[in-house]
Design a protein around this nucleic acid. Structure first.
Lengths: 252, 252
DNA sequence: CGAGAATGACATGTCGACACTTTCCAGATT
DNA sequence: AATCTGGAAAGTGTCGACATGTCATTCTCG
């Protein structure tokens, strides 16, 4: 582990903590499978609209008028259209022909389905990680875990959230199966809204950190079955939280 | 107000043998999550280019010049661009900024990854089917299976191929988990090229029919474990075929 | 004679404009 | 008063054109 936080809190935090905006931006682009050197115009729009949806500033059913968006971003409608199409493919936006695009809704049963599939897939990830990851790989995972702990200590939900995304993606990367990563990405994107909501509920961060700890220990012990079980239960706990919350699915 | 189109003539067409082109078209659009009533322009391009890639007329590395395509389809570049972006999202096309789009390649290890994930997911499908499908549902599955048998008897690879797609999709539908279906769709699209190749090899159709038979019997017996095993082995048999063939991955 | 720079052709990214579809509102009709 | 109808307003789908970036060839210079 790294040194404890006996230094001045504010300074240590700023030094150890990369910019959230940059982090979220990078994770989003990676998940969208976008080349780093891409045309920034479309990417800007995707990121702005996408994070607005994920973090709840845009709600299901909200209109996404392409003319207005183009005014907002000082571009023509072409890049806006492309961005909306990409967001549609990821399930953030619904587009019907000749109708205004809207922020997509999610029914509760859809949400449950998504979590089940995700849990199932993460069991596979865990099996692969145990089979393929070196000790150094696990060190990398633990480093992310340390930052997770920090964020939890500060009760910084947004930071925790995006670092958590990083953790899960690192884990998936260790599985050495690009297809698995890609599938999880496309699924994960759809779920980002929910995961954000789930982590926003009080007391959730502490238990989440604990779960991650146990998961890493299982990896260290090379116990595939245990790791898979923890991994799946970590996902399903998110679902339980949402089910208990006041979440109501919003019409598809 | 109402219809003058009741000239219902010989609409009782070849119910036994639906048009392959229509079948492939429908399956593709469904997998792409496209509304039925969509703008046909973009869809036409997607279907033409997509099936050309799947059935091997377009090979990895081939250029997909948007100007030339727009001439070919007698449209402007805008719909072509949109179609190519969709195909990119599904892994058929690679687009780098300011470079000509190309038909995407597949390395052997990627192919193996894809089959492994697909096999794993179909185990989940089988579990869900056993849990959720009624006897009538299984009847529907068996009906598709009958058509599969027919196609195999005729040694009609293309028909068998697309009917097989229908079978797998029906099965996934019975799992009653829309997310699972969607994930499988996006993965399945990427694999269509390979599955087509795999089934093209001699002697493959007969064994495939046999496998499907056993799978259905397991469903009838409500034996989830057995069904999952058959389902996975059905997928992996496709991989084995490809590995044994002269397939060489073409540069990513 | 060969390597690097300039140049031109070509393809993509973006733009503003136009036609068509949908939506909404006001006036006419029953 | 409620409903139907007509048409304007708003928004999308498509287009042709321009600007920018990339590639290939040629030209220059060591």
């Amino acid at each position: 582990m790294t040194d404890p936080t006996n230094i001045d809190g504010a300074v240590a935090e700023q030094a150890a903590a990369p910019d959230i905006a940059a982090l979220s931006r990078a994770e989003l682009l990676r998940a969208l499978n976008r080349p780093e050197t891409g045309a920034s115009l479309v990417d800007e729009i995707i990121i702005k609209v996408g994070t607005d949806i994920i973090e709840g500033r845009l709600k299901p059913g909200d209109d996404l008028n392409s003319v207005e968006l183009s005014k907002l971003f000082r571009t023509s409608r072409t890049p806006v259209r492309e961005a909306l199409l990409t967001l549609q493919r990821e399930g953030f936006v619904e587009i019907e022909a000749h109708r205004r695009p809207r922020v997509a809704g999610l029914s509760l049963s859809e949400v449950q389905d998504m979590y089940r599939v995700r849990a199932y897939l993460y069991e596979m990830v865990s099996h692969c990680v145990v089979a393929a990851a070196s000790e150094e790989d696990l060190d990398r995972l633990e480093e992310v875990q340390a930052r997770l702990q920090q964020a939890a200590d500060c009760d910084d939900v947004d930071r925790y959230f995006w670092t958590n995304v990083e953790f899960r993606n690192t884990e998936a990367g260790l599985a050495q199966n690009t297809t698995l990563v890609r599938v999880l990405d496309s699924l994960g994107l759809r779920m980002l809204r929910l995961r954000h909501l789930s982590l926003s509920l009080p007391g959730r961060l502490a238990t989440s950190v604990e779960d991650h700890d146990r998961l890493i220990r299982a990896y260290r012990d090379r116990d595939a079955k245990l790791a898979a079980a923890f991994s799946a239960s970590l996902v399903m706990r998110g679902l339980r939280t949402i089910e208990r919350s006041s979440w109501v699915g919003i019409g598809s």
